[in-house]
């Protein structure tokens, strides 16, 4: 019994990290109707950035700050190069363009770092909470994810820039009429979404070994979570992540790990089919 509860607890914690990744994806979709298929590649980059900062002697949790900054800049760059020109074209074009970006990142990563696993080795303690054991890294990762989410909400609801993002997300034309420079806002939103993906990748790297291809697994998890919560709805994405984590945690003690993916994909397709706007409702 203890084992099962621990596993569910583990699931909950990792689910918060999935949630963070999903918010990055869903934010970009919400603001500009782009499904960012470079999401997974960026998550991988987050993992590797953490690895190199850690290797350079930075404490892994401190390294999150430069990782977020790099993520933001990278996102702005991707937006300017690959997305801006075709934003008003058929939606499939942005899908393909972001996928092309993903191929480029993963390709370069593979050439530089091969596809063998890397590991961020630092001392991990196990904590005992009411008799259930969790690792401190997992707890910290989850707390960090929650913290970042709070910061994002503060930004979106309390700052002028954040309000501008929400305005553009709601109705770009109207926002432009009100004098909000939508191109800048779009670039910033893409930057934030990318930064969130990098951060979640970095947090995952403190927990598990990873390769340049690992991001794709979390990209799919992000999709599942965002779709669960309703694409375009950040709160929903966080809950979606938690639900996903809980599902993983609850089935982990009973079935081989390799089956969890099958279950997730099936859930994913079923949700898309029967609740295309998510369980919590999102924007279409």
């Amino acid at each position: 019994m203890i084992e099962i509860v621990s596993s569910i607890l583990d699931g909950l914690l990792i689910g918060l990290v999935y949630g963070l990744a999903s918010i990055g994806l869903t934010l970009i979709f919400g603001v500009m109707d782009v499904v960012n298929l470079a999401h997974g590649a960026v998550i991988s980059l987050g993992m590797f950035s953490l690895y190199f900062f850690f290797g350079a002697g930075l404490h892994p949790y401190l390294a999150l700050i430069p990782v977020a900054i790099i993520g933001f800049l990278l996102g702005v760059l991707i937006y300017q190069i690959a997305v801006r020109r075709i934003l008003d074209g058929p939606p499939l074009m942005t899908l393909l363009a972001t996928f092309a970006v993903s191929m480029i990142i993963v390709g370069i990563g593979t050439a530089l770092w091969s596809t063998s696993p890397y590991n961020v080795n630092f001392k991990v303690q196990t904590l005992n909470i009411f008799g259930y054991t969790v690792t401190s890294a997992r707890l910290i990762a989850a707390l960090a994810a929650v913290l970042v989410t709070f910061m994002l909400y503060y930004f979106l609801y309390r700052t002028t820039l954040g309000k501008a993002v929400r305005a553009v997300s709601n109705n770009r034309e109207a926002a432009e009429l009100m004098g909000i420079p939508s191109q800048q806002i779009l670039a910033i939103s893409f930057g934030i979404g990318t930064a969130l993906a990098m951060l979640s990748g970095a947090l995952i790297a403190t927990l598990f070994p990873f390769t340049i291809l690992s991001g794709s697994i979390y990209e799919l998890k992000s999709f599942v979570a965002s779709v669960l919560g309703g694409l375009g709805n950040p709160t929903g994405a966080l809950f979606g992540g938690v639900i996903l984590g809980l599902i993983e945690g609850s089935v982990a003690p009973f079935i081989a790990i390799s089956w969890t993916n099958v279950i997730e994909f099936v859930i994913f397709v079923l949700i898309l089919l029967f609740f295309p706007t998510g369980l919590l409702g999102g924007r279409k």
Partner: peptide
């Protein structure tokens, strides 16, 4: 899955391939 349009359809097709592979 063809009841889904645009990005939703594209995502579902990735899901189908990965689910079948797994």
């Amino acid at each position: 899955i063809l009841r889904l349009r645009g990005a939703y359809f594209a995502l579902a097709t990735i899901g189908v391939n990965e689910a079948v592979k797994d």
